[in-house]
Design a binder for these strands. Structure first.
Length: 803
RNA sequence: GCGGGUGUGGCGGAAUUGGCAGACGCACUAGCCUUAGGAGCUAGCGCUUUAGCGUGCAGGUUCAAGUCCUGUCACCCGCACCA
């Protein structure tokens, strides 16, 4: 027990001091250099904190603590994303009001976070369910409405059969509900929508100016899915024309049939002219029955029905070609109809083979009887009238011009991104501040009426008829129209959980402001967030949504930076001991409370940072925690062997400079595992000496402080180093002092290591080589042979090539 | 199918970007200490043994390859009929 320190009382002591002194409160002095570090605020669930949470929180805490020591005014805030279904479901099951559940969950989360010693500025704590907060969430909605970016529309939406609630496209993963994994079906419903598509270009282009890890950018780009193409009008034999969208207008001469989505509106219009309309309707009914899941699973075989009696006319050559319906064409993308070029599109090729349709080669370079030739980098146009002989790129331009001149086509950009379905038929969310009046339609509440407070209801169970529980609150629902004063009803759907989190980082800048969502000065100073770390699962949800809201707020002058986050990184998951995802059902969940109790917060922090590459998933290992504990115990034990001296001893000088450099750089690159390894290494070196000078110990404690803040602060005080450690300065290093005066180099003969020798670091190549040749082992290898080449790689090795 | 990534001891993982593979830690082995512990200290620890072989596999470039090139296999993640 010699080296064990009393972590429990030490950690409690410093947490109390930090609380009392408001040590980590961000200063409102806008002249100082600033650093805004952010982690995703948690959803305060009943299960409490998971060991996954602290991985992200600790990493940015380390960055924040280091930045403070480097003289920055640091904002590192925390709050609660507290609206949402699990709380509501828990409340229903246990007959407790969601607000009460939320309060106790928050209290538990807060206790847990405090026990881990994070340097959050608790004076700026926010809670999305607090009316003084969601007042501004509602305010933003009203601005979106006023700018025409929020609209109500009856449409087919994703409906989670278990949550009994609509879902945004982003919330449907592999055809099932992102949250509960239940089946998602389509339902016709009138929903509030946000026009995120209006921002598709800005959201894409903005990615070029931010420092996000590449996979985040790629995922967002894929999700938005911009493509440049051409919209082309086709006449038909029945008089109506229709448009298709293509990215390969150059292949227009290769079109041998057309395909419409089964839901295309022209089909019913043509009903009388389609001889086999019953077969067509039967096919459509079949397609409608399939869920998204089935429709994407059954991608193998192409199906379809030819419209009997209607043909399309190819504008470039006047040929009449058949029109099919098939569910491989989506009504939601482009115009819901395509021109089919089986020679140069894999899907069209499969369809043509199955239905025995002609395949025409219009780009030379492949064998279109064997497979579609889709490469457009080098082929040359053939069988294509005036396009013949041109490259694909030139042909595209030429045909676009040709189409535009004759008013039968135009250049068009398309996106995969769809508008954001914004209403939810549940209780525990922000009320949408809109009123429906028979006379005036949907009318926004006046801003002075905000917040529109969520009323207390007797039952908040979801309904099967697709209505929000609020719909039963007639007293609340019935109101007067803000516009004409006549009778009107309130919107009873609530906002999705993503609403409150779409702007929370702005509120931290000025959390108690009751005039604006935050003051201009505060926003100008703190934004954008300098560093935001969070989970990959939010890339096309929260991260995309909040970039959208921010860009909108920027356009209406409510914020001053075009992007909310300057830098985005992402942590890997912490897996269970068995390498599987931690979950209650697998029984491999680790509770951070127990680790804090058994080993202390500092050990927990060091262990989670040492566990492996921050970006990769890492399995938990109960046995390995000991290594981190031992490390801290040894640092503690050093205090028994402190000797006088403010400087680094000469034989340790290079080690210290190197370690300062390594730790400083590694923290900036989230390489916490190697930073800790470097500190362990230095400790081993110091231990071998048997003692440490005061100056050395000070540097060491400061370097370790961001990782193990309680223990280092206690040791600082115990050793009378003066004041508090967190008020000192981060140590500097001198590049020129990072190298030892003597180094060990390897001697290779023909690339194989034969010996190792010590030489002065600044030895010349000639001296190094001649020293190497004097080595006995080397002499044996090279004697009697021709030396072909001699190399010296400074501070590394000598290689002698002989024959 | 398309896009991105990964592959290194028994385990987690390092490797200054072409320069001594296995840092640091866990586990393990032996010894020491001790009123015995889930403690501490010392030493060892990739595989075979004079010398070799080793970074998923097979080639290649180079004085030198975990790192670069070609092919191939496996696994993970994202998108998924987006025309």
């Amino acid at each position: 027990m010699k080296y064990n320190y009393d972590y429990a009382s030490i950690e409690k002591k410093w947490q109390d001091i930090w609380d009392e002194k408001q040590t980590f409160a961000a200063k409102t002095d806008y002249t100082l250099p600033k650093f805004y570090g952010l982690v995703e605020f948690p959803y305060p669930s009943a299960q409490g904190l998971h060991v996954g949470h602290p991985r992200s929180y600790t990493a940015i805490d380390i960055v924040a603590r280091k930045k403070r020591l480097q003289g920055y005014n640091v904002l590192y805030p925390m709050g609660w994303d507290a609206f949402g279904l699990p709380t509501e479901n828990f409340a229903i099951k246990n007959h407790i009001h969601p607000a009460v559940v939320t309060e106790s969950n928050i209290a538990n989360f807060k206790r847990q976070l405090k026990s881990l010693g994070f340097s959050f500025d608790w004076s700026r704590e926010i809670n999305t369910t607090d009316p003084s907060y969601y007042k501004w969430t509602q305010w933003i909605f009203l601005q979106l409405f006023k700018q025409g970016l929020a609209y109500k529309k009856k449409m087919s939406v994703n409906w989670c059969t278990s949550c009994k609630c609509v879902l945004a496209n982003e919330e449907v993963v592999n055809g099932v509900c992102e949250r509960c994994g239940s089946e998602v079906v389509h339902k016709e419903k009138s929903q509030w929508m946000l026009k995120i598509t209006e921002y598709a270009d800005k959201l894409l282009d903005g990615l070029d100016n931010v420092d996000f890890i590449e996979r985040v950018k790629t995922q967002q780009r894929n999700w938005i899915g911009r493509s440049y193409g051409t919209q082309v009008k086709f006449q038909t034999t029945v008089g109506d024309e229709f448009e298709i969208y293509t990215t390969r207008a150059d292949t227009l001469f290769g079109v041998t049939y057309m395909v419409m989505s089964p839901e295309h509106p022209l089909i019913e219009k043509w009903a009388k002219k389609i001889a086999n309309i019953e077969a067509v309707r039967a096919y459509r009914a079949e397609a409608a029955k399939k869920s998204d899941f089935e429709r994407t699973e059954l991608t193998k075989d192409k199906t379809g029905v030819c419209l009997d009696g209607v043909k399309a006319i190819n504008p470039v050559n006047g040929e009449e070609i058949p029109i099919f319906i098939s569910d491989y064409v989506l009504i939601s993308y482009g115009t819901g109809a395509i021109m089919a070029v089986p020679g140069h599109d894999t899907r069209d090729w499969e369809f043509a083979k199955k239905f025995g349709l002609p395949i025409i080669e219009v780009v030379a370079g492949g064998n279109v009887e064997e497979a579609a030739y889709t490469d457009c980098s080098e082929g040359v146009l053939v069988n294509s009238g005036f396009l013949t002989g041109k490259s694909v790129e030139d042909a595209k331009k030429a045909i676009q011009e040709w189409l535009t001149e004759r008013n039968i086509g135009y250049v068009k950009t398309n996106f995969k991104l769809r508008d954001w379905v914004f209403s939810r038929q549940r209780y525990w969310g922000e009320p949408i501040p809109m009123v429906y009046c028979e006379k005036c339609g949907y009318v926004p509440l006046d801003e002075s009426e905000l917040p529109l407070v969520l009323p207390n209801v007797d039952t908040y169970e979801p309904t099967d008829n697709g209505e929000s529980p609020l719909a039963n609150m007639t007293e609340w629902v019935n109101t007067t129209c803000p516009h004409c004063g006549g009778p009107a009803t309130r919107e009873t759907d609530t906002m999705p959980q993503w609403a409150g989190s779409s702007w929370y980082y702005l509120r931290y800048c000025d959390p108690h402001n009751d005039k604006e969502l935050a003051s201009k000065e505060a926003l100008e100073y703190w934004c954008p967030v300098d560093w935001y770390n969070g989970g990959m699962e939010h890339t096309t949800l929260h991260l995309l949504y909040s970039r959208f809201w921010h860009k909108f707020l920027y356009d209406i002058g409510a914020v001053t930076s075009p992007e909310p986050y300057a830098k985005r990184t992402s942590h890997g998951m912490i897996l269970g001991e068995n390498g599987e995802k931690m979950s209650k059902s697998r029984g491999n969940v680790v509770n951070p409370d127990e680790i804090v109790k058994d080993y202390g917060a500092d050990t927990m922090r060091v262990y989670e940072m040492f566990i492996g590459d921050f970006e990769k998933a890492a399995p938990w290992s109960q046995a390995s925690i000991k290594g981190s504990k031992r490390f801290l115990d040894k640092v503690w034990a050093l205090s028994e062997n402190v000797i006088d001296g403010e400087d680094y001893r000469s034989e340790l000088e290079a080690d210290f400079h190197r370690t300062i450099k390594k730790v400083t750089e590694d923290i900036e690159n989230l390489k916490m595992n190697t930073a800790i390894a470097a500190l362990m290494s230095l400790l081993n070196t110091i231990q071998a000496k048997g003692n440490i000078t005061k100056g050395e110990y000070k540097t060491y404690l400061i370097l370790l402080n961001p990782f193990a803040p309680h223990m280092t602060e206690e040791l600082w005080q115990l050793n009378d180093f003066g004041g508090m450690l967190n008020e000192t300065k981060w140590p500097e290093y001198d590049e020129s002092k990072c190298v030892d005066s003597a180094v060990e180099i390897a001697i290779q003969v023909n690339g194989k290591i034969k010996a190792r020798i010590n030489v002065p670091a600044e030895i010349s190549a000639d001296d190094a080589i001649s020293t190497a040749k004097e080595n006995e082992a080397v002499k044996n290898e090279i004697s009697g042979k021709n030396i072909i080449k001699e190399l010296y790689i400074p501070k590394r090795l000598v290689n002698i090539v002989v024959k």
